[in-house]
């Protein structure tokens, strides 16, 4: 990858103690419960975790698709968390999203041209012949045939639809894109196509990605740094090579031990850390460290207090009592 070096001090986005709670009847679902991290300009931050751990909610809250319960979202020095919808509108051009399900994320009643053109219409970026030209340019950018602008989404395959979704996100020329599991609904061969397209676009347009996924090997491939989430909290965050070679948090260790190795000899003798039980309900998380109920290394103090989010090594953050 011929990528520009990332300036470690140039934070495009800074998340401080972000919380998103949902009220479900009398209960409070703590989908995201105090997450802090930064995203540097031009980097790809991978976010991994089991289903229901709050990765997607975190991504959507950062884009203000949900109003955060607490915390700050600082994008290029501006706090978004308190902005109203109309104040957010110009900022919507700066940050975009690519969705998980290529079948649900395109309106079946609109043509591909109108789907991509919607962004241009909302922000008044182009109209008439210029609009058409721009749509065709965006279609070529994601290597789709520009003549397809009058077709409907159901005529395309999953991978093609995902590329339409990418073209829609690119229409406003954003700086930052949240990729919410953009490849998990695709065939493996098509996954590679889409990931490579995302990388090319990053290089060409200097994009910054937050890449949410549960496929650990794919995240390692695309990300500069990787954060691991469990039950609404970030448990570990480090450069991807470091995280994969030397995971500190017991949960990260368990996750990484689950990656299959494409060599039957090694695979057979590989030692797996199997976690006991299921993820506790986010409506009623355990006291103290919320991983302690399944942690093989749980200690008495884990129940007493939640662990601090600490930088134990340069650029390697972890929240665990083992390292406090």
């Amino acid at each position: 990858m011929a990528k520009k070096p990332i300036d470690q001090n140039d934070n495009l986005l800074e998340i401080r103690d972000l919380k998103k709670y949902f009220q479900i009847g009398e209960n409070t679902l703590k989908a995201v419960d105090g997450v802090s991290f930064t995203i540097k300009r031009g980097e790809t931050l991978g976010i991994v975790g089991e289903s229901g751990c709050g990765k997607s909610t975190a991504g959507r809250t950062i884009l203000k698709l949900y109003d955060p319960t607490e915390g700050q979202i600082i994008f290029e020095g501006k706090d978004l968390s308190k902005l109203s919808n109309s104040e957010m509108k110009p900022l919507r051009r700066e940050m975009q999203m690519i969705f998980q399900d290529p079948y649900a994320s395109l309106n079946p009643r609109m043509t591909v041209g109108d789907i991509i053109g919607e962004a241009l219409d909302i922000h008044g970026l182009a109209s008439g012949a210029k609009r058409k030209e721009r749509i065709q340019e965006l279609l070529s950018l994601v290597s789709l045939n520009p003549e397809h602008m009058n077709r409907f989404p159901h005529e395309f395959s999953g991978g093609q639809r995902q590329r339409i979704g990418i073209a829609r996100a690119l229409a406003v020329e954003p700086k930052f894109i949240v990729c919410d599991e953009p490849i998990s609904a695709l065939d493996v061969s098509v996954q590679a196509q889409v990931v490579n397209l995302l990388e090319q676009l990053q290089e060409k347009m200097g994009l910054t990605y937050m890449f949410i996924a549960h496929d650990l090997s794919m995240v390692k491939y695309i990300s500069d740094r990787v954060g691991v989430m469990y039950l609404g909290k970030m448990v570990e965050l480090a450069e991807s090579d470091k995280l994969y070679s030397k995971p500190l948090h017991p949960y990260t260790q368990a996750l990484l031990s689950a990656i299959p190795i494409p060599d039957p000899e090694i695979e057979r003798n590989r030692e797996r850390i199997v976690l006991e039980g299921d993820v506790p309900s986010p409506m009623n998380p355990p006291s103290g460290c919320n991983f302690r109920t399944r942690c093989p290394k749980a200690m008495p103090e884990c129940a007493a207090a939640a662990p601090q989010w600490k930088e134990v090594e340069p650029n390697h953050f972890v929240a665990c009592h083992l390292y406090n």
């Binding site: 969705f99 994320s105 395109l106 919607e118 406003v172």
Partner: peptide, 21 residues
């Protein structure tokens, strides 16, 4: 549906979401 969310993330207002989607 995700396409409604997509329209929202593009900055679409209630009227657009309602009558276009």
């Amino acid at each position: 549906q995700e396409y409604v969310l997509a329209a929202r993330s593009l900055g679409a207002d209630d009227m657009r979401v309602l009558f276009k989607h």
